[in-house]
Amino acid sequence: MGKHVLLVEDEINIIEAIQFLLSREGWKVDTHSDGATAVDKVRAMKPDLVVLDYMLPGKNGIDILTELRADPEFTRLPILMLTARGQGRDRELAERAGVSRFMTKPFSNTEVMTAVRDLVQLAQ
């Protein structure tokens, strides 16, 4: 398939895990761990999908999401948000900001991969 994924996450072990899972299925994976420059990174790379952590240094996931959705180019970009905060309010905030799928850590590998596949198919 060769689709292009940008993974915005600051926990190295989680980056390692997700990167392993995606590359194994033939995805091209780029990683980025700074929240403050995440939007620029998306603009520059124009990925097919963004996996976005909620808590990032510099700027949190909701703000990044809001900023991306404000850009006409990315209104339909599939964005999967992951959070470890596990609070109902966060899901609400993310959905209002226009998230494509919201998932609470810890997730099962199958769950993540299914979500990623669904999102990319839906976008096509």
Binding site: I14, A84, P106, F107
Partner: peptide, 11 residues
């Protein structure tokens, strides 16, 4: 708590 658990579960 969830962050290390995520890694543990995933790996």
């Amino acid at each position: 708590l969830r962050t290390p658990m995520t890694s543990i579960r995933s790996f």
